[in-house]
Structure formats: C-alpha cells, structure tokens
C-alpha cells in the first residue's frame, strides 16, 4: 500500500493560454498584417500553430515537415523527424493537453453550453484512425510523390485540411488586408502571389507569397477563391463539431496528435496508477472526455494528458508526471484505438 496524497492538476487552462500567447507574441504582425521573420522561426512549436499566423514566432512542425519533404533538396526531414521524436518521447500528448493552441481553442468551444453534447457514438472508434491516414497520405506521401515540374511538392494537409492554418493564418491575414475579393472570384493562373496593388509596377511572381511586397509599406491584398471557400468550410465544420464533441480535430484529424500518440505509451511524461489505492469507482472513466478508461490503461495513444481523471480520482490512485515514480502500465498503451475507447 502506498501512502500518497491526492494529486490535483491545476492551472492547465492558464498554461495553455500563456504558452499560446508566448508563441504568438509577435503583436506587430497582427497590427500590420505581416508575419514574424526572425531567427526563432528556425525552431518548431511543439503543437499545431500555423507559421503563417501573424503572431507566430515559431514554425509549425506539420507545415515544416511537408515543406522539407516537398522541397527539391530533400525527400525526408531528419530535422523534423528528430524534433517530433524528441518531443514525443519526452512529453507525448502532454503537448496536446497543455501546449497546443488549437487544442485550447477546441476546449473553449466545447465549454459553450449546448443541449446535445456527444462524445460517444458508433463511428467514434473507427474515425480515430483517420488521423493516421492524414499523417501518412496528406503529410508524407502526397508532398513527397506529387511534385510539379520544378520538383516541388505541395503541402497537401495544410492546403486542403488544416483548420488551424485557416483560423490562425488565413482569417487574420484576409481581415487585416481589408480588401479580400469575394469567394468564387476567378484566380489568375500562375504562381501564387498577393494581388498586385494598383499603380505599382509588376514585379516577378512570388512562388510562396510574401509578408509585404518589397519596398511597400502598404498591406498586400489577398485573393480568396474556391480553395479559401473550402478551407473556411472545413474550419466552420471543425468549430461547430467542437461545440458538441470534445476536441474532434485532435481525435480524428490531427497528424501531430497521431505522431505523439504513437509515442505516448513510452513517453517520459506519464499517467501512473497505484492499484492498491484504486477502489474501482469508475469516476476516472466518467471524467474522461476522450472516452478512455484510465483505470485499466493509462498511457494510451488517445490520452491528451488533460488530468481530468487524476482530479476525479478520490483516492489518489492516479497521478501524472515525469517518470515511473509510481510504476505505470505501459504495455497496454500500445493498443489500438479500438481497444482504448469505451464506446
């Protein structure tokens, strides 16, 4: 029998907010419709945080991974693989629960009162595999295999799915530009670029766009079209789903969550169970909004380390922290989502 005081996970919301504010602290960007271009962008954010967000001071690991894979110089990114391996092996999905700005936004949305909250439904377990498809197909395979004449791949996940990029990057930039064209307007053929401002000499096309056109103080005017409409629809769907379902993007679509989830069972940061203290009351299971069973499996890929089960445990049998201070169940964590969810 272990005499342990009950652990309380406190201040998670504050940590989420402070980390999101710290990593999006380029306030000039929000004021001027520019993005940060300093050296910190060589480093990656551990969570999903679009590097085209005006405030972002770090790079998005998923965007960066696609950028390197899709570049002409490299087919694999050792830098990003190493970064994700290091973060995943030490923190696992603690990143999702504490450090990811888009996870925080989804949690805020879930707090909106709504009479029909639904976390358990028949397709839930199967849908959780979708994020692995996103990772393999849209983040790795398509940017690697679908290349243009110049040999460059497209960041497929960012381009067609990522609602974080739309919310954190596209929406503020379009609003700040103040003169977006209506959805459905035809886009000019050719390289992507901010729309040329009236009265300015035409310059060479920019392959990836620019924060501000060289030598100009004025803000660029961004074009919106069918792709923007699609991205807005995906973002709206995720936002609406987040009101009724806890973290739907994290559960079903996030490729970063898929990577960290695979490392969650062996990560240094762990959920620990002391069986001698457990009274099998089931409160941890009821408290888990990810629909997991912390009593029987603590370190599973789907656990985002929110700590709700630890707080709900009346005896202190569940604790969370670095290392094996109170030995944990690690092997069960390697199970598939089908074995992890209750529904």
């Amino acid at each position: 029998m272990v005499n342990a005081s009950k652990q309380r996970i406190r201040g998670r919301g504050l940590i989420q907010l402070l980390f999101a504010a710290l990593t999006n602290s380029f306030v000039t960007g929000f004021a001027a419709g520019k993005i940060y271009q300093g050296d910190l962008k060589r480093l990656c954010h551990p969570g999903l945080n679009c590097y085209s967000c005006p405030g972002a001071v770090l790079s998005c690991p998923i965007g960066a991974l696609q950028a390197v894979i899709g570049s002409r110089a490299f087919n694999l990114s050792l830098y990003l693989m190493g970064f994700l391996l290091l973060v995943g092996a030490t923190l696992g999905r603690f990143v999702c629960g504490f450090l990811c700005p888009f996870g925080m936004i989804q949690e805020w949305l879930y707090k909106i009162p709504f009479p029909w909250k639904r976390n358990r439904f028949r397709a839930d377990t199967a849908l959780r595999y979708l994020k692995y498809v996103m990772l393999v197909v849209l983040v790795i395979a398509l940017p690697m295999l679908l290349v243009n004449d110049a040999g460059a791949g497209s960041p497929t996940f960012c381009k067609y799915v990522c609602p974080a990029g739309t919310l954190e990057g596209a929406v503020p930039l379009v609003l700040l530009s103040g003169a977006a064209k209506a959805p459905g307007d035809a886009l000019p053929a050719g390289p992507l670029q901010p729309q040329a401002l009236p009265g300015l000499p035409a310059g060479p096309p920019l392959l990836q766009g620019a924060a501000v056109l060289p030598g100009l103080e004025a803000q660029p005017v961004y074009q919106t079209g069918a792709l923007f409409t699609w991205k807005m629809a995906v973002m709206a769907l995720v936002i609406l789903l987040s009101v009724v379902n806890y973290r739907p993007f994290c559960k079903y679509l996030c490729p970063l969550g898929a990577i960290y989830g695979l490392l969650n069972p062996v990560a240094l940061y762990r959920l620990r169970m002391e069986e001698s203290l457990c009274i099998h009351c089931g409160r941890c299971r009821k408290a888990c909004l990810m629909c997991l069973d912390p009593e029987h499996r603590q370190n599973q890929p789907e656990c985002v380390r929110c700590g709700d089960c630890v707080n709900a445990c009346p005896t202190g049998a569940l604790t969370m922290g670095f290392g094996d201070k109170r030995r944990t169940d690690e092997t069960a964590g390697a199970a598939s989502p089908a074995r992890q969810t209750r529904g």
């Binding site: 390197v68 830098y79 990003l80 960012c158 920019l206 924060a211």
Partner: peptide
C-alpha cells in the same frame, strides 16, 4: 536526427518556408 538534419541544411529550408506567408497552405 536533429543534428543530422541541421547539418544538411534542413533548418534553412524550414526557415525560408516559415518567414513567407504560405498562401497555398492557408488557402488564400
């Protein structure tokens, strides 16, 4: 892996991508 990736210049690739607004990425 981080060290190997940095040694072969991947950090610069990430940096070049990250300091430009990726219009394609964000759908505008």
């Amino acid at each position: 892996l981080i060290a190997l990736g940095a040694a072969r210049g991947e950090v610069d690739t990430v940096f070049r991508k990250a300091i430009m607004i990726c219009l394609e990425c964000i759908g505008i």
